[in-house]
Simulated scan of single mutants.
Amino acid sequence: MAGIDEAIPRVNFETMQRYHGRKVILCCQISQIDNGTVRVTTSDKGEVTIVGGSSPYEGRFAEVMGTVVGPTNIQELEHTNLSDNFSLDMYNELVKLAHKDAYIGMFST
C-alpha cells in the first residue's frame, strides 16, 4: 500500500519561513505582475514574490501552491484565482490556528 503524501501546510509570511524547500499553500493579494513574476501581499502584510506561474492571475486575490525557495520567494506549481471579496484577515486567523500545537495538520491539504 502506498504511503500518504505529506500534508501541504497553509501559510502566511511568518509561517512560510519554516518551510524552505517544501510545498506550501499561500492565499494572498496581488500587488504587481511583471515579466513572469507576481508580487503579492500576504495575510499578515508580508511581501512575497511568486515565480514560474504559467497561467494568468485574474482579480485581486489568489491561492498559490508552490515551493518556498527563499525567505520571500515561492516557486509556483499552480494557483487558483479567488473571489474579489475574499477575506485575507479571516485566512490569517485560520493560519494562526492551524499552526498552534493543538491543531497542527488539521488545516493542511
Rank of each mutant, 00 (worst) to 15 (best):
T15K: 05
T15Y: 02
T15V: 05
Q17P: 07
Q17E: 05
R18T: 15
G21L: 12
K23Y: 15
K23N: 14
V24Q: 05
V24I: 15
I25T: 01
L26H: 08
C27T: 11
C27R: 07
C28M: 07
Q29Y: 10
I30H: 08
S31P: 11
Q32W: 14
I33F: 12
D34P: 08
N35Q: 15
G36A: 05
T37G: 10
T37E: 09
T37Q: 07
T37C: 12
T37N: 09
V38P: 07
R39F: 13
T41M: 15
T41W: 09
S43D: 04
V48K: 03
V51Y: 07
V51T: 06
G52W: 05
G52N: 07
S54I: 12
S55R: 14
P56V: 07
Y57R: 12
Y57E: 01
E58G: 08
E58T: 09
G59S: 05
G59C: 03
G59H: 02
F61W: 05
A62E: 08
E63F: 03
E63D: 08
V64G: 01
G66K: 03
T67N: 12
T67V: 12
T67E: 14
V68C: 09
V68D: 00
V69R: 01
V69C: 00
G70Y: 10
G70R: 14
P71K: 11
T72G: 05
N73Q: 12
